[in-house]
C-alpha cells in the first residue's frame, strides 16, 4: 500500500509513520503548512519557519522516507480561522481543531490522495478504524485517556475506508516507548494543548488582534433581564465562564447564555447552566443511515459519555447536563463505536 502520513512533528504521527513503514508500506510524509505566525502576523520575508515542521522533517529523514510540506494556508484561513472568529462573533463556542480535521486534514487531503498516488491517509490520532459488515467504522482509541474519536466523529464510512490510525491501538505509553526505542527526537516531546494558530492559549488576545471590531461593549444581564453591568465584547465570554464577568455580586455567577443579536451576556447561578436538551445540526452518520432513538452522547474531547435520546434534531439528555454551549460538537457512540457527530445549535435550559 502507498500511505500518505500527515506528520505534525509530534510523537504520535512520527510513530504512525514508522509503523506504516515497518509494515512494509511505501510511506510519504507530509506536513501541512497552515498558518504563518503564532499570532497571525505576516511573516517578514514571504517565508515560513515552522519548528514543528522541522521536527517532522527530521523524523522523516531518520525514517528515510520522502517528506514534503504542503501549503494549506488559504484553506485553513477560510475554513478554520475565519470561521473561529465568526463563531465567536455570533456567540458560539467553536472547536477549531474539529473544523480543521474536517475541512482541511481529512476533506482536502483525502480528495488529493490520488494526486499523490497514495491509497490511504495516515494520521497519529488515537482512534481505530475497522471494517464491520462491509462498512468502515470508527472506534475509540485503545488508550481511554488519549482517545480522540470525538474529534473524528464527523467522518463518513467512505472517508474512513481510506484512513488509517496506526497508533490508535496502542497506549500513549507504548507509543512513547516505541519512539524512544527508535531513538526518535519526538519521543519525549510534550503534548500540544493550545489551539495551534492562537498560541499561548490566549484566544481572546488572538481575537482582539484578528477582529478588533467584534469587541463591542454591551450589557451584562441576569436571567430576569436586569442589567448588572457592562462587558467589552461578547467574544470574550464562553458559556460556563465564571471569572472576569465584571459584575460584583455575592454568590458565584456564571455565563449562562450569549445573545449575539442584542450583544448581551447573560449570567446566572450554577443551576442556570443545567441543560436538559440541545438542538443539533450538520449531523453526519458514519454509515450514512439516519438514526433516531437512545444514544450515548459526548460533547467534550475528554468528557464522559452520557445517555440521551435523539429525536429529529433534538437530543434530550436522560439527566440534565452542565454548561453545554452552541457551537460545540456532539459525538454519538454505540459502545466504543462512533455512530456520527453533529454541531450543537441551541442549548435548552
Amino acid at each position: 500500500m502507498r500511505a500518505l502520513v500527515a506528520m505534525s512533528g509530534g510523537v504520535d504521527s512520527s510513530v504512525a509513520a514508522a509503523l506504516m513503514r515497518d509494515q512494509g508500506h511505501d510511506v510519504i510524509g507530509v506536513t501541512l503548512k497552515l498558518w504563518s505566525g503564532p499570532n497571525g502576523e505576516a511573516p517578514t520575508a514571504g517565508c515560513c519557519t515552522v519548528s514543528d515542521a522541522e521536527d517532522a522533517r527530521r523524523v522523516a529523514a531518520e525514517l528515510d522516507i520522502p517528506y514534503y510540506v504542503l501549503d494549506y494556508t488559504d484553506d485553513f484561513k477560510d475554513g478554520v480561522v475565519d470561521r473561529f472568529v465568526r463563531d465567536y462573533t455570533s456567540g458560539q463556542t467553536p472547536n477549531p481543531c474539529i473544523e480543521c480535521n474536517r475541512t482541511v486534514k481529512f476533506d482536502r487531503l483525502l480528495n488529493r490522495l490520488g494526486e499523490f498516488d497514495c491509497d490511504v491517509l495516515v494520521t497519529g490520532h488515537h482512534a481505530q478504524v475497522c471494517e464491520v459488515d462491509g462498512s468502515w467504522a470508527l472506534f475509540r482509541g485503545a488508550d481511554p485517556k488519549k482517545d480522540q474519536s470525538y474529534v473524528l466523529s464527523m467522518l463518513t464510512s467512505d472517508q474512513l475506508s481510506r484512513l488509517r490510525f496506526p497508533v490508535g491501538e496502542l497506549t500513549k505509553k507504548k507509543v512513547r516507548h516505541i519512539a524512544a526505542g527508535m531513538g526518535m527526537r519526538s519521543a519525549h516531546k510534550p503534548e500540544s494543548m493550545d489551539i495551534c494558530f492562537v498560541g499561548q492559549g490566549d484566544y481572546r488576545g488572538f481575537l482582539r488582534k484578528q477582529a478588533p471590531e467584534v469587541f463591542k461593549p454591551g450589557p451584562v444581564e441576569d436571567t430576569q433581564g436586569n442589567e448588572l453591568g457592562t462587558h467589552d465584547g461578547i467574544v470574550g465570554f464562553t458559556v460556563g465562564q465564571r471569572r472576569g464577568l465584571g459584575v460584583a455580586v455575592g454568590e458565584p455567577r456564571f455565563v449562562v447564555r450569549i445573545e449575539a443579536d442584542t450583544n448581551t451576556v447573560v449570567v446566572g447561578d450554577r443551576d442556570d447552566l443545567e441543560v436538559t436538551s440541545v438542538d443539533v445540526d450538520h449531523i453526519t452518520w458514519a454509515d450514512g443511515n439516519a438514526y433516531e432513538g437512545p444514544v450515548t452522547a459526548q460533547f467534550r474531547a475528554h468528557g464522559d459519555p452520557v445517555d440521551a435520546v435523539l429525536s429529529g434534531s433534538t437530543l434530550t439528555f436522560d439527566e440534565s447536563q452542565h454548561a453545554v454551549a452552541p457551537g460545540q460538537t456532539v459525538a454519538f457512540y454505540s459502545g466504543d463505536r462512533v455512530m456520527g457527530g453533529a454541531l450543537i445549535s441551541r442549548a435548552n435550559l
Binding site: C48, A53, V69, D71
Partner: peptide, 12 residues
Amino acid sequence: SACQSGAATVSH
C-alpha cells in the same frame, strides 16, 4: 520560489 519550510509559495 520555495519558502524555508519547503512549501511551494506563490511566486512574487
